[in-house]
Write a protein that binds this DNA or RNA. Structure first.
Lengths: 391, 391
DNA sequence: ATATTAAGTCCATAAAATGGATTAAATCGG
DNA sequence: CCGATTTAATCCATTTTATGGACTTAATAT
């Protein structure tokens, strides 16, 4: 049910509208904010005052635009006080980052750890240490960590990590193993949001994060699509050929068996993505054939995905980013051949410019996003001096 | 951007919350409404007063529940005044229905017309006539038509019907050919909503509407998923086998080539779905084989759909409803074999109990749904005596 | 120097919800 | 059978929030 609006929630929501517009429209005057939001100058002024007090926005001096009349003072998001911690657990590394309210990355730490050999408890002890170091460092720069989120390589439902096959974990309530509150979310989903907030892409796209598994996150209108139980986006197990090779999921002919990291390297007869890239650059026929095959399979799976979910564009990330020059052709051609007659515009295939820490950036970004959407909650929390996040 | 809340929109939203709760919780007292919504009894009372005045709710007498204290008077949705018109254009028929605010079907009219031979202008002239007759009849029962919606067999983007291959139409702005305002929407989407509001299903499901084409509508949390451009849900062109038979969409091995009405009848060597059902009941091996093959293909396509969209359950409608006893087995087994290891719960396959007019019911239901979500708009429209819908 | 224009603040007012008091209508207990 | 109790619904003064016009401020234009 949509919640009833009361006086206090009206104010909370309008604060969010104003702050959201400040983010969207960069440094902007109070008068322009009033115009855009439809609120009066009075109301906007009062709200901007509160946000200034909380250090969430800052005045960036008079905005002399050469027009007549008194120039306005522009207010913009301030990155000096509020920040968020983003974390990621993956097969062979842990990472942490701190992002401020302007989505500037203030800190990145990555630590190579072989988590395949480790238990959840061990891994999370490591992560906790990493997080505390990051927070201490951020604090010394005057930042207050307002919250944190964690990306994990597997489907998550309400804080419970169902299964992370590449870690060998099952049904782990990850948040309970840390000494600070954290939102837990699928790595593919957060990588998609990372692309949304830190990449240059549009706000409607399907982000494909090829790693050992192949996941996808659909972003529509700036929101992540999660499905009924948060298990949507398993592009890696879309069926490319119903009688194809057996997959660890129990099916046959899943995309992962054609375009997953392991299948791809096996087909090329190489060890590691960097070696594959080198071979491709050298023009080795075996490597080229392997990529061609993977690209066509990806095109088939994406065709099904486009028919079902209708994304605006498709962004390839993960291992597909370095392989993009070789994947792009066969995948794109397959899609055009199979989609063009049904749609005016076949979604464009683009490449992610984010590196491996898309997911931890997305995690931190999500925390920031929520604060901006509901600054009232954060304001109340800080005045009540109950700082969330690690201390 | 989320819209700013002002005093008037606060009231409008709360009206919607109250009316929504009246629908959800059946006849209910003002006191209980206050409790559930979190608004005060005073506020709720005033709103219920307004809704009574508009004829949208009615008091259904004292609610004597045997408890102590003064019994409350229950208010429930009233079906006596406000109603909506639902329309449908399909290959071989036109239909219209009138549904009141309680979602009771007050009128159904179906007219067999061969629209394959007709131009949009001719067909819509027919439809307009049908609509006016339905509205006149509804009016004579004291109903006021508050709006109308139209289901068409093809993808629609912002009122524009892109392509209806089975009608031979392209880029028709359907609403412009009628003399009353109408919301136009894909038949598969509206059939899914029809299932939501008039069927008995849950509020998270994928509704498959097998007709000549195979479409699907995803309903999540009572909302329809539309994709970036409203073109989502084309299950019929999900790829079952990449080198399968050529499809009119330009691809190969689409589901439609295995489980579409034409492919299915051709494989069975029969003419018409009733004949097929008769043959299946008689146990004819050719018909059984054709259904088995279609069911397995449907299972493959649904497996991909479940991996990507994660629906709670799957509801089979259209021609798959009468064929359900024979389709259900092979499709369900295919899904379980391919999904069970990845998910705790494989979405259940169920059958739609709605007939062929699911889409026109969904259309009318959508209008009602919008009125209930925002009764303030309807209230303002009626007091300003600008009745939408045909007159 | 003066007029004009636009930004931002001030203040009285309006709209809506709130919360406590009151009235109404039932059951319970003797 | 009557008063006590309990719950529903309404009434009314109050509070919260946004509004809109007046006012002040700071710039450009003439």
């Amino acid at each position: 049910m949509t919640q009833a609006v009361r006086h206090d929630s009206m104010r909370a929501r309008n604060l969010g509208v104003v702050l959201g517009e400040v983010r969207r429209s960069g440094p902007i005057t109070r008068a322009a904010l009033a115009e855009i939001t439809g609120l009066t100058k009075t109301t906007v002024s009062k709200m901007v005052g509160d946000l200034l007090g909380a250090g969430m926005v800052a005045e960036s001096g008079a905005l002399r635009d050469g027009e007549r009349g008194r120039p306005g003072t522009a207010v913009g998001l301030s990155g000096h006080r509020v920040a968020a911690l983003g974390l990621e657990i993956n097969v062979d590394y842990l990472s942490a980052c701190v992002v401020d309210l302007t989505l500037s990355v203030r800190l990145r730490r990555t630590q190579a750890v072989d988590n395949q050999a480790a238990s959840p408890v061990e891994t999370l002890a490591h992560l906790q240490e990493l997080a505390h170091r990051a927070v201490d460092e951020a604090r010394s720069e005057g930042l207050a960590i307002a919250g944190s989120a964690l990306a994990v390589p597997g489907p998550v439902d309400d804080g419970l990590l169902h299964a992370a096959p590449n870690l060998g974990w099952h049904d782990v309530r990850v948040g309970d193993l840390l000494d600070f509150p954290v939102a837990v979310e699928n790595e593919a989903n957060l990588a998609a949001l990372g692309e949304l907030w830190f990449g240059s892409g549009p706000s409607d796209f399907l982000h494909v994060s090829g790693e050992i598994g192949v996941g996808a996150g659909l972003v529509l209108g700036g929101d992540l699509f999660r499905g009924a139980r948060g298990l949507a986006g398993e592009l890696g197990h879309v069926i490319v050929s119903p009688d194809g090779p057996a997959c660890r999921c129990g099916g046959r002919g899943c995309l992962e068996q054609y375009a997953g990291q392991e299948a791809l390297l096996r087909a090329a007869g190489l060890d590691g993505v960097p070696a594959l890239v080198a071979a491709l650059q050298a023009g080795e026929p075996g490597a080229l054939r392997a990529c061609e095959r993977a690209g066509r399979a990806l095109g088939v799976a994406l065709t099904s995905a486009v028919h079902l979910m209708d994304p605006g564009t498709v962004v390839l990330g993960g291992i597909f980013a370095p392989l993009f020059p070789w994947i792009h052709g066969p995948a794109g051609e397959t899609m055009i051949a199979r989609l063009a007659r049904m749609r005016h515009a076949v979604p464009e295939l683009t490449v992610s410019r984010l590196g491996g820490d898309a997911a931890s950036l997305g995690a931190a970004g999500q925390v920031i996003h929520r604060i901006i959407a509901d600054p009232g909650a954060h304001l109340a929390a800080t005045t009540a001096r109950t700082p969330p996040g690690p201390r």
